[in-house]
């Protein structure tokens, strides 16, 4: 039987029954921008960066199952404009001061901003007040950069079996919390060996005493734009990222 395929910007992409557009695109080494998606975890479809137009309708490619003969638009000026706007909103909602961020150069939010040529945050800055949590001996939490992707939530709950992290509040008040009465990471059983310690796509969950081991300018996305790294992104697993 012929393998089902869909068209991604006119290119035929084969898929297995039940696979999402994102999974099939990743397997075919075709880049669809994404932030909250990670091949190891159940997709949740919250950041909307991966929005594509499938048979004329906007859908999240990380949650939408591929169908035979589907026509999917991905890399179009219209979709990329919308994605850039989403990025700009994420930037102004937090405090993203890249020059002093340990994640700079390894950060997916920043790498996508480069990829989509985001030159300014466009919207007025919120400058929220979000104190850091430096209580844990091995890990620093800098909430200023959290984009609420819930990868740490999913990893801690589904892989580590600890549920150290959760999101609390609604709308603009939504924020990441630590599951301890004190709210401090030191008062949980969180450890550097946890999967959740290594999944944050931005600079929130940072290992202490490891700052700037690789100089700025020689990092992951300094070397090659994220759009040319789909193979690596598809291969992200616990082994590779620890």
């Amino acid at each position: 039987m012929k393998q089902p395929t869909f068209l991604l910007d006119g290119m035929p992409v084969p898929f297995e029954e039940g696979q999402t557009i994102m999974d099939a695109a990743m397997a075919a080494d075709a880049f669809i921008p994404h932030l909250c998606h990670h091949p190891e975890f159940k997709p949740q479809g919250s950041c909307k960066l991966c929005t594509v137009k499938a048979n004329g309708r906007h859908v999240s490619s990380c949650t939408m199952q591929a169908r035979d003969g589907m026509e999917v638009e991905n890399n179009t000026p219209d979709l990329n404009d919308k994605r850039r706007t989403l990025l700009q909103m994420l930037f102004v909602e937090g405090n993203h001061f890249c020059p002093s961020c340990e994640k700079s150069g390894n950060c997916m939010l920043q790498a996508l901003a480069y990829e989509l040529e985001m030159l300014s945050p466009h919207f007025d800055q919120f400058y929220p007040d979000r104190p850091v949590d430096a209580s844990h001996p091995d890990v620093l939490l800098d909430f200023n950069r959290c984009i609420l992707c819930e990868l740490c939530v999913r990893a801690s709950r589904d892989v580590d079996g600890k549920s150290v992290f959760a999101l609390s509040g609604r709308g603009i008040g939504k924020h990441l919390i630590v599951n301890a009465e004190s709210g401090r990471l030191a008062d949980t059983d969180f450890s550097l060996l946890d999967r959740a310690a290594h999944v944050c796509p931005v600079g929130v969950i940072l290992e202490k005493r490891k700052g700037f081991a690789v100089p700025i300018g020689q990092r992951l996305y300094d070397e090659k734009p994220i759009g040319q790294q789909m193979e690596r992104l598809a291969a992200r697993t616990a082994k590779v990222e620890v």
Binding site: F91, F97, P99, S100, S120, P121, Y127, D129, R130
Partner: peptide, 18 residues
């Protein structure tokens, strides 16, 4: 033209904003 991080998003001096 806004030249550099501080002109673009406030940069280091804006770290006093909270």
């Amino acid at each position: 033209i806004a030249l550099g991080a501080c002109a673009v998003n406030g940069g280091l001096p804006a770290q006093r904003n909270h």
